[in-house]
């Protein structure tokens, strides 16, 4: 899963879906998930999946790449599906539900900057957890960058060979160093936040709830998905 790339798609896009308010898109995603949960017919799920696929294409996002990411949970559903008795229909339903729900979440996250989603979640979550979301997301990129740099330098010095046990120890040490370096950076950044008046809650803008003319699209999709699910039963 490419978080950095997903972030870029969300911030860089300019489609009507990108421009819709975060509030409308969250409402739409909630309705879509509700529809997926109550769907008992694969045809309803296929229709919702196709609609999501088309919207991603109209939003000029790499649909196949995103569909591949949405299929990722299916990989982990294999054991679950293999253990399911009751025929191929149930197995198909497990995969269809997983992939459709994942695609609905990905439509939200690839068209909405994470800052706005976290700001919306911050309205219902305690301050430490809301700030923890920001801190985790930021730390993720710091860790990735530091880790990539360290691995490159280890390889350039001939210190890594895929099949040697010693390499595993070195990798663990690289991760240890990455962790310490990222921790230093995060603590510096946290100290800077305190200097700038941080008092236990990172202030977030209210842009996420500013409704606009583009909001009709996500709301229509959400309501449409629920209607289709109720009709195809």
């Amino acid at each position: 899963m490419e978080l950095a790339q997903i972030d870029q798609w969300a911030v860089g896009g300019a489609s009507a879906w990108h421009r819709a308010s975060t509030l409308a898109k969250i409402l739409s995603t909630t309705l879509l998930l509700g529809a997926v949960i109550v769907a008992t017919d694969w045809r309803a799920l296929a229709a919702i999946y196709a609609a999501l696929f088309l919207i991603l294409a109209f939003a000029r996002l790499p649909v196949f790449k995103i569909a591949l990411i949405a299929a990722y949970p299916a990989l982990f559903s294999i054991l679950f599906a293999l253990s399911a008795t009751g025929g191929i229909g149930i197995v198909v339903l497990i995969f269809a539900r997983g992939c459709t729900a994942a695609l609905a979440m990905l439509l939200l996250i690839t068209t909405t900057p994470y800052v706005e989603i976290f700001a919306a979640l911050g309205r219902v979550l305690p301050a430490l957890i809301a700030d923890g979301l920001f801190a985790t997301y930021r730390a993720f990129f710091i860790l990735l960058e530091t880790f990539a740099r360290l691995v490159t330098s280890v390889r350039l010095r001939g210190g890594y060979s895929r099949w040697k046990l010693k390499s595993m120890t070195q990798m663990a040490e690289v991760i240890g160093v990455t962790f310490l370096h990222a921790l230093d950076l995060a603590e510096q950044s946290h100290a800077a936040l305190h200097l700038r008046g941080y008092a236990g809650k990172i202030p977030a803008s209210d842009k996420w709830r500013r409704v606009n003319a583009n909001d009709g699209l996500p709301v229509m999709l959400g309501v449409g998905a629920v209607v289709v699910t109720l009709l195809v039963r």
Binding site: L128, G132, A135, A139, I142, L143, I175, A182, E187, H190
Partner: peptide, 17 residues
């Protein structure tokens, strides 16, 4: 309290990776 947030973020990010 002063140190908990950065460490929380880094450890959670490590779990995420």
């Amino acid at each position: 309290s002063a140190r908990r947030l950065p460490r929380l973020g880094i450890v959670a990010a490590l779990m995420l990776i």
